[in-house]
Amino acid sequence: MHSYKDSFMEYLQIEKNASPLTIKHYGRDIDEFYTFLHAEGTAIENCDYSTVRVFLTKQYEAGYARKTVSRKVSSLRSFFKYLERENWFDSNPFANVSLPKAEAPIPNFFYEQELDQLFQVSDLTDPLGQRNQALLELLYGTGIRVSECVQLKTGDLDFSLNTALVLGKGRKERYVPFGKSASQALRTYMEDGRLDLASKHKDPVRTLFLNARGGPLTADGIRLILNKMVKEAALTVDVHPHKLRHTFATHMLNEGADMRSVQELLGHEHLSSTQIYTHVTKDRLRNVYMNSHPRANKR
């Protein structure tokens, strides 16, 4: 089993050029399936469709969400497909397993008034405040993922064109534009606050966003920063870095941007991933109704 897994991991890394996070998730799903086979006393070579059905039953009994189980099935289907391709297995026991997809939830997003409050909380005379403002402006101004944000280097920003070179999923690069507000916040941070933070670290750090000790800021660090900003803004909303990405896409589409352009900006491989943002806010619906219906404003 482990030799099969090691070979598959090498295939993902070299041939598929998968990200370290993707490889980690595949490995974890394979390890879990191996633990299940061991508990059942079944060798991987004897795994068949009935074995898979027992595995799925135990997944649901353990309380895993349908989305989580679907991801595991996808991982293991790819794993066995590779083993079949290498002629180590005659068939793929996951090939005929189909799970109905749960309806995708409408992403949460910030209303403009909530964002205005967030943009007011940072102390722009303080290095950490300058960093937090630049972080907020960039995440909302570009819609990039938090995993993409923490990888940004100072050299990835081009202020002559106001663009950022982003390394996305599958190590695919794309250029993402940012606006005047983000540009000003980033310049202030890089020319002032970042220099102060960088001086606290013994070795030079190339990543754009630094923590209080001058080291690279992590994804968990970004979450803590945003949660603190929400509390300081006295907002009673849930916050996570992806919510700013949802907000970026929602506001872009609500203001008339075409879906293909938003797809490219977000780095989505499939248009279906972008279509979830075609919902509209209640405020916009109300404005459309009030301005369009003949009797909406009749007294």
Rank of each mutant, 00 (worst) to 15 (best):
Y11G: 09
D31T: 05
F33G: 02
L37C: 14
L37S: 10
L37N: 07
A39L: 14
I44W: 13
E45L: 11
C47A: 10
T51F: 13
L56P: 10
T57I: 14
Y64E: 11
R66C: 09
R66G: 06
V73D: 08
S74H: 09
S74L: 03
F79S: 01
F80P: 04
E86W: 06
E86I: 03
W88T: 01
D90A: 11
D90C: 07
P93T: 00
F94P: 02
V97A: 12
L99K: 00
K101L: 01
A104D: 06
P107C: 04
L115C: 09
L118M: 13
D123C: 12
D126F: 06
L128V: 02
R131D: 11
N132M: 05
T142W: 03
S147I: 00
S147W: 02
D158F: 05
F159V: 00
F159S: 02
K180F: 15
Q184S: 10
A185F: 12
A185C: 14
A185L: 09
R206N: 10
T207L: 03
L208V: 04
F209Y: 15
L210G: 11
N211L: 03
A219F: 03
L226R: 01
L226A: 07
T236C: 06
V239R: 07
R245F: 04
R245N: 10
H251Q: 13
L253F: 10
A257S: 14
L265T: 00
L271N: 04
S272L: 04
S272F: 04
T274Y: 11
T274I: 12
Q275D: 07
V280R: 11
V280C: 12
K282G: 13
R286E: 12
R295N: 09
R299K: 15
